[in-house]
């Protein structure tokens, strides 16, 4: 059952007392604990906190990759936990873009094919895919690498392609879990600039987890998690 709760059209994500617990032996670990959060369109938000603070779990919950122990996640007013697994996959396909820390790309496909892959899953025709892929390659500045395989790209290039792939389906927002974790300073800088550019010019909403100070300094909103709870939620004008 879908619920239309959020009347404010700018609200993309809203969580309500969102909790997730794991069993570790006999003890219960609260990865997120009654998290209430709202993400609006066009945000460039970083979830920060020490290792084990629940950043990844929060992103997984918002992306519908795991179900909460209690609480709710609404994406554009829709309670995603009410969706069946099949509906959830389809929902993600059309509404959420993902950038992971590792293995974002399908190694046997070229850069161009990787970007077009999600569109292919959406059922877009070949012309549309070619046009959108070319556009995104331009945005990430990798037009010359369209036919390269991921194995020939640097870590930073792979992450930029991953961002382009996440954007290909024209999602509501992009979830990125520590996108710069494996990158050197220069590559991290380039990736962040690409993400910022997309945020500013294309109004793409980014929600990402990080403990990289370079990323934190670029974020316009910093949500700090400690022991699964939000301890700070600060907005900056950059």
């Amino acid at each position: 059952m879908n619920e239309l709760i959020d009347n404010d059209k700018s609200i993309i994500v809203r969580t309500e007392n969102l909790s997730k617990s794991f069993l570790d032996g006999k003890s219960v670990i609260k990865a997120t604990d009654r998290v209430n959060l709202t993400i609006t369109s066009g945000e460039f938000t970083a979830v920060v906190g020490p290792s084990g603070s629940g950043k990844t779990t929060l992103l997984n919950l918002i992306g519908g990759l795991t179900s909460p122990t209690s609480g709710k996640v609404f994406v554009k007013g829709k309670d995603i936990n009410q969706l069946t697994d099949k509906e959830l996959v389809n929902f993600r396909l059309h509404n959420i873009g993902f950038v992971f820390q590792l293995l974002n790309l399908i190694p046997v496909l070229t850069v161009e094919e990787n970007i077009g892959f999600v569109m292919e899953l959406q059922g877009a025709d070949k012309e549309q895919r070619i046009e959108r892929t070319a556009e995104l390659l331009e945005v990430i500045g990798m037009r010359d690498r369209a036919h390269s395989r991921p194995s020939s790209l640097s870590g930073g290039q792979k992450q930029r392609v991953a961002v382009a792939r996440a954007l290909a389906s024209k999602p509501l927002f992009i979830l990125a879990d520590e996108p710069t974790a494996n990158l050197d300073t220069e590559a991290a800088e380039t990736l962040l600039n690409t993400m910022l550019l997309l945020n500013e010019k294309e109004k793409i909403t980014f929600l990402f987890s990080t403990h990289d100070p370079r990323v934190m300094n670029k974020a316009r909103r910093l949500i700090t998690l400690e022991d699964g709870r939000i301890t700070k939620d600060e907005t900056y004008v950059r």
Binding site: G97, F100, L103
Partner: peptide, 16 residues
């Protein structure tokens, strides 16, 4: 496992 998880995350159905 990781590869399958990524593919399902980005919207590839389990059946596909």
């Amino acid at each position: 496992k990781l590869e399958f998880s990524v593919l399902i995350s980005i919207g590839m159905s389990r059946n596909k």
